[in-house]
Amino acid sequence: MDMRKLGLIGGMSWASTAIYYEKINRIVGQRLGGRHSAPIVIDSLDFEPMAAAMGEGDWDFLTETLRASANRLVDAGAESLVICSNTMHKLHARLSEEIAVPILHIGDVTADAMQEAGVHKAALLGTRFTMSEPFMRDRLRSHGIELILPDPERMAEIDRIIFEELVKGEARVESKRTMKTFLTNMEKTGIEAAVLGCTELVMIVNPNSNVVPIFDTTTIHAEAAAEWVLADAA
């Protein structure tokens, strides 16, 4: 089987990186059968200093951290990269100019899935950086998708859940209920769908049991990565 080698820039957080690894390998195994798994190299970063740098607005440190990670993966034979984090896609354009292999953008593949479903407007849920800064909204807008934001109180609570619970691998029942309530209330405002714009949110939001269609960027990104791995397989 001539599969292509994928590199994952992970650890942001380890919990969502594990989801990527499992989903990609399950797709490859289902497609090829037998004991096949995907050729993947992972560079899993320590999220504590990265979270601190985000809080301080030190994006130069974060850029250098991801650049070094990407280069380690390329040196290890990766032919394409996936950044296992929505927030770190703020650095996608800069890294793409400097890294020798393509980096699959989470926003592009999410927009493709939304267009296929006929959805052109949705609520964006994620970290405060992903929700309040334009890098994700602008990317999807370039595909004809409009993203709207929760109110400031909901934004703050979603960000707290992500950074205080989910990145530690904690999926608390009360946070699942909170997100269910948020989505129910947002549905009443007339939104068509919701985008889980944080790779950990799928830990507490079931895309298949909500009042509005849910576009889980983690699953969509992982599925696109698996398709890339399998593109040359025969």
Rank of each mutant, 00 (worst) to 15 (best):
I99P: 00
E146K: 13
I40A: 02
S69Y: 02
M1R: 15
R67Q: 07
V211T: 12
T87W: 03
P152A: 13
M88F: 07
K121W: 08
V229C: 10
V167F: 13
L104G: 09
M179S: 01
N206W: 06
D43A: 09
L230Q: 06
Q30E: 07
C84P: 02
G33S: 12
D138M: 14
V167N: 05
D216A: 08
H36F: 11
D75H: 02
G29K: 15
E174C: 08
R94Q: 14
D75L: 04
H89C: 03
T217S: 11
P213F: 09
C84G: 02
A76C: 13
R154V: 12
L8Y: 14
A15L: 09
E133K: 15
R128F: 00
C84Y: 02
H89R: 11
D60T: 15
I214N: 01
S96P: 03
R172I: 12
V41Y: 10
G33W: 08
G126H: 00
G107H: 03
M12N: 02
E133A: 11
V229R: 02
F47P: 08
G34T: 07
A231W: 05
M1E: 03
L201E: 10
P39R: 03
A52V: 12
I83E: 01
R35K: 11
M131W: 06
D232K: 15
I161S: 00
A111P: 00
L166C: 04
L62Y: 01
A224W: 01
H92M: 07
W59A: 04
E153F: 01
M186S: 02
A156N: 10
G33H: 08
T178R: 04
V173P: 00
K121Y: 04
G7S: 07
T219H: 10
A193P: 02
G118F: 14
R137W: 00
E64L: 06
M1G: 14
M136R: 04
V41S: 10
D2S: 14
A156V: 07
R4P: 07
I42D: 06
V28I: 12
A171D: 13
A225V: 02
G144Y: 01
M114P: 01
A233I: 12
K180W: 13
E133N: 14
R139S: 11
G118C: 06
T217N: 06
A53F: 08
N71E: 14
L62W: 01
I83F: 08
A171T: 05
E64N: 08
V173Y: 09
L196A: 13
N206A: 06
W59S: 04
S13G: 13
P213Q: 07
K121V: 09
L32A: 10
I24A: 06
H221T: 09
G197W: 01
V202H: 03
G57H: 09
R160E: 13
L8R: 05
V229D: 10
R4C: 03
H105W: 06
L62T: 04
F182I: 03
D2P: 15
T65Q: 03
I9W: 02
E227F: 00
E165G: 09
R137S: 11
N206V: 05
I42N: 06
I204E: 13
W14T: 07
G10I: 01
V211L: 06
D43S: 12
G57Y: 07
S132D: 15
E98L: 14
V167R: 03
L125I: 06
G77M: 09
R172L: 15
V211M: 06
Y21H: 10
G197E: 12
E153N: 06
L62A: 12
M179L: 06
Q30I: 03
